[in-house]
């Protein structure tokens, strides 16, 4: 669906990636890492300085309008809808542009208005809407015509929890229909829920592209195990721990999940002592971003 071959543009440097049709990719990275540039290159709003980009086997810069039939794009710095027109009028424009039948359009509009909740202000002009209201309408406008490829830049900004959940549900449905989804977001919950693959950008470099679980193992392998002891403190010398801390009867163990599993740790503890409660904390995508922002991931690049 999307292919980048040694692409450089602005901060992006020598990015090569292939995203097959039907996959969902979460584009993550600290601010300024090149996520929006990546999306603009994919849809043809930017041309690469070096390398080439193909979207649906076409050069997106020269076939932008043609690709527009089956591609939906939402970028934070680009308004999707005409500000001085009402919600309904904007959707009516889309009906004309995408040559939708009257019946099909009405049905689709009703579903989207219900799920995303913009039906109650459909006669308001876009510039009279709040950020969250506007975002709901923009997402509806993109989903109206069932695009084969959807590129979203921070889609949940301004959305409340219900709207976020409804959007997730809607996107998951569309993914089942075969839609390819690329989301750039700082909301790691969103990415985790929707994306099977992660593309990690750090200072313009694609430092990881693959499954989410593998990313965590590589960049945020430190998990935590909390044990409420009812017996004595066991000998922890021969365990491959990163660190441990005892606070009254609460023992906190931090370990590298690539070296030892929580099951192995518990098995060891059970042999040496007794305890009344156990809690494990797995690393999350947000931890990866935090580490990138702190510049702590360089050690992994060197070791890869």
């Amino acid at each position: 669906m999307i292919c980048f071959e040694h692409v450089s543009k602005f901060v992006l440097s020598d990015v090569s990636i292939y995203i097959p049709a039907g996959t969902s990719v979460g584009l993550i990275g600290a601010s300024g890492a090149g996520k929006t540039t990546f999306l603009k290159l994919a849809c043809g709003l930017l041309s690469p300085e070096r390398g080439f980009v193909r979207t649906m086997r076409k050069n997106p810069v020269t076939h932008r309008s043609e690709l527009g039939v089956s591609m939906g794009v939402m970028l934070n710095d680009i308004p999707v809808l005409a500000d001085d027109n009402s919600v309904k009028s904007n959707f009516d424009d889309l009906r004309i542009i995408y040559r939708m039948t009257e019946g099909g359009y009405k049905e689709e509009y009703r579903i989207l208005a219900d799920v995303l909740g913009f039906g109650s202000y459909e006669n308001e002009t876009i510039n009279a809407l709040s950020l969250g209201q506007r975002r709901r309408v923009e997402l509806g406008a993109l989903l109206l015509r069932h695009p084969k490829l959807l590129l979203l830049d921070e889609p949940t900004i301004g959305l409340d929890q219900t709207a976020k959940e409804n959007l997730r549900m809607l996107l998951a449905e569309r993914q089942k229909e075969g839609m390819t989804l690329i989301i750039s977001s700082h909301d790691m919950g969103e990415i985790s829920a929707l994306c099977e693959r992660i593309a990690l950008l750090d200072h313009g470099m694609l430092t990881y592209y693959g499954e989410r679980e593998l990313l965590l193992k590589r960049f945020a392998p430190m998990d935590t195990l909390e044990v409420i002891l009812s017996g004595p403190l066991p000998d922890l010398e021969d365990l491959p721990l990163h660190s441990f801390m005892l606070n009254q009867n609460k023992l906190t163990l931090t370990y590298n999940s690539n070296h030892v599993s929580s099951a192995e740790l518990l098995h060891h503890l059970l042999k040496k002592t007794s305890f009344t409660g156990v809690t494990t904390y797995k690393s999350e995508l947000a931890d990866v971003i935090k580490r990138i922002e702190k510049g702590e991931t360089n050690e992994f690049y060197r070791g890869k």
Binding site: S65, G68, I78, I97
Partner: peptide, 14 residues
């Protein structure tokens, strides 16, 4: 001025 020209460029109409 408002940047929506980029969105217009993505539409399948001239």
């Amino acid at each position: 001025q408002n940047g929506s020209i980029a969105n217009e460029m993505l539409l399948p109409v001239s």
